[in-house]
Each structure stands twice: as structure tokens, then as C-alpha cells.
Amino acid sequence: MNSLAPSRVWMMRAAFTLLILIILFFHLLPLQTAPGGIIWPNLILAFSLSWSVRRPQYVPTVLLACMFFLADFLLQRPPGLWAMLALVACEHVKSQARSLRDASITTEIAFILAWIVGISISYRIILAILYVEVPPVGPALLQIVATVAAYPFVIVVTHAFMGVRKATPNDTGTRGS
């Protein structure tokens, strides 16, 4: 796993934390106090997945769990459930990262789509089983669609602007030593 200098790995981990905090910050801005506005894609999930596909070592399990858990708390969701499902999705995506590395972008999107839809449905089922108030279907579906639609843009941003790219054979040697 020593494909990258530790300093860079830690820097990117900090960058990921910052990214999630910025997304949360924009969620919390008191701009939309009346119901019925735009439904934003779940960018936290989209970015976590796209980073997990590209560089699993930048998004360690503990960091992901902390970020999802914080998001659950601040965004008034039942704490823990969505965090757990998102963590399972990211971990599975990470374990498939090597095969996804060589896959085309369409395969990646299809794979991610399956996970987003899968965990969204499981979320609703578990809430319903435990008699927790389930969020309304319409906006929830819209959010799934928005998240999947936003995913290609998230890939572009991750790849181009954040420099988080899939590992190439050149990266496997030690760097910075």
C-alpha cells in the first residue's frame, strides 16, 4: 500500500474532510426555509463513492463513518442508519476498486447506480420495519435521480479539479523517496 507518500495521503484525507464539511455548510445555510424548493443531490454520498472508486486509501473507513455520522446528526436524519448503509456501500466499492480501475466509466456509473438505489431502498425498508416516519416517496425518488444524475459531474470534478484519479501502473512504485 506504499504507493504514495504518506504526507500526500494525509493531505488528501484532510481535503476530503474539508470537502464534506463544505457540503454540510451549504446544506445548513438558512436559504431554504419554505418547503418545496429544489431538491439537491446527495453530494456527500456521491463524492464519497467517487473517491472510494478512485483512491480507497484517501477515504479510510473510520473517516467515512465519522463524516456520515456527523451528516446524519446535522441534517436531522435518524442518526446511524444512513451512515451505516453509506459506509457499507463505500466499503464494497473500495473492495471492488481494483476491478473498477480498468472498467469503463459506464460500468462504474451502473455499479454506483445499483448501490445508491440499493441503499436508498434498504433505508426506507428498515425505517418502515421499525415504525419510524419514512420520508415522502416523491422527493426521495427525486433525490435518488438527482444523485445519480449528478454522479458523472462529481466524477469530473473529482478527477479534474481535485486530482483524485484512478491509480495507474506508474503509481505502484514508491514516490517521494
Binding site: L24, H27, L28, L29, P30, L31, Q32, T33, P35, G37, I39, W40, L74, L75, Q76, R77, P135, P136, P139, A140, Q143
Partner: peptide, 12 residues
């Protein structure tokens, strides 16, 4: 802050 989610209507 607001609730940050389209499923909840609350402010802080």
C-alpha cells in the same frame, strides 16, 4: 441554519 434536508422543515 435550516434543516439542510428537503424532508425536514426546521430552523436553528
Amino acid at each position: 441554519a435550516d434543516s439542510g434536508s428537503p424532508f425536514r422543515q426546521s430552523v436553528l
